[in-house]
């Protein structure tokens, strides 16, 4: 995992975000290099999902700077389309389009947003379904698939846009334990192929195994961060220690 010299692809500087009176992010900074896998962990309500949603402008920020693939997200004339071509996002509740088959879910964005040829998009969609180990399920509707299968279709759907960064927002939190693994394996494959991934997760084992860098958030700030080995074994901050002791 030689990523020392890689370019920074996501740069977050002193980001502040409030929902009404409630300040959710109180000055968060982090950098992600190309090909890196970042895990953001922390208790519920600590702002980790909000942070990841800021990266593709689903939430807008009130202070600080975010730069993704050279796109300045604080620019009032932000081209959201350009941003979303670069950043793929997978959600906790999969959010597939229930009235479309798995295949249609995957080809919608490439044909409608990227204006790709339908035949080419379909060919790619079949490849992606194979990649997420769901060959044969192309014509199933989301309602006919298990949670884990739906989540893998959602990953394929994001990949079809050829993003530079993938965001995963607690993607295994709604799954039953047996299907968690199949989704994690898919993400691990991606990470090993060099996809830049930012994950919000509660899967500590997975974070330890796959992440290059772990960030621990609590109460709107990053309390501690480091490579998994140091983070899990030599946490310094009392809050991190307490959190880890409850989870591990």
């Amino acid at each position: 995992m030689l990523k020392k010299n890689a370019e920074t692809i996501v740069s977050i500087r002193d980001v502040h975000k409030s929902f009404g009176q409630l300040e959710v992010l109180k000055g968060v900074s982090l950098d992600v290099k190309k090909g890196e896998v970042i895990c953001v962990i922390g208790p519920s309500g600590s702002g980790k999902s909000t942070l990841i949603r800021c990266i593709n402008a689903l939430n807008n920020i009130q202070g600080g700077e975010i730069n993704v693939c050279g796109i300045d997200l604080t620019d009032p004339k932000l081209d959201k389309l350009e941003l979303r071509k670069r950043v793929g996002m997978v959600f906790q509740q999969y959010n597939l389009f229930p009235h479309k088959t798995a295949l249609e879910n995957i080809i919608m964005a490439p044909t409608m947003v990227l204006k790709q040829d339908r035949a080419a998009s379909e060919k790619r969609a079949f490849e992606l379904m194979q990649k997420v180990r769901l060959e044969g399920k192309e014509h199933a509707y989301p309602g006919e698939l298990s949670g884990g299968q739906q989540q893998r279709v959602a990953i394929a759907r994001s990949l079809a846009m050829n993003p530079d960064v993938m965001l995963f927002d607690e993607v295994t939190a709604a799954l039953d334990p047996e299907t968690v693994k199949e989704v994690l394996v898919t993400i691990k494959d991606l990470a090993q192929e060099g996809m830049t991934c930012i994950l919000v997760t509660h899967e500590m084992g997975f974070a330890r195994e796959v992440a290059d860098h772990i960030y621990f958030t609590d109460n709107g700030v990053i309390v501690e961060h480091g490579p998994p080995k140091t983070f899990f074994n030599k946490a310094k901050d009392p809050r991190t220690k307490e959190f880890l002791s409850q989870i591990l």
Partner: peptide
């Protein structure tokens, strides 16, 4: 709302989101 967000995050325009996702549902 999350279905709408999924469409947005895939780069759908407001019209595309309405026409192909929100309205059919």
């Amino acid at each position: 709302d999350s279905t709408k967000e999924a469409a947005e995050s895939l780069g759908f325009s407001r019209f595309q989101t309405f026409r192909y996702v929100m309205f059919p549902l």
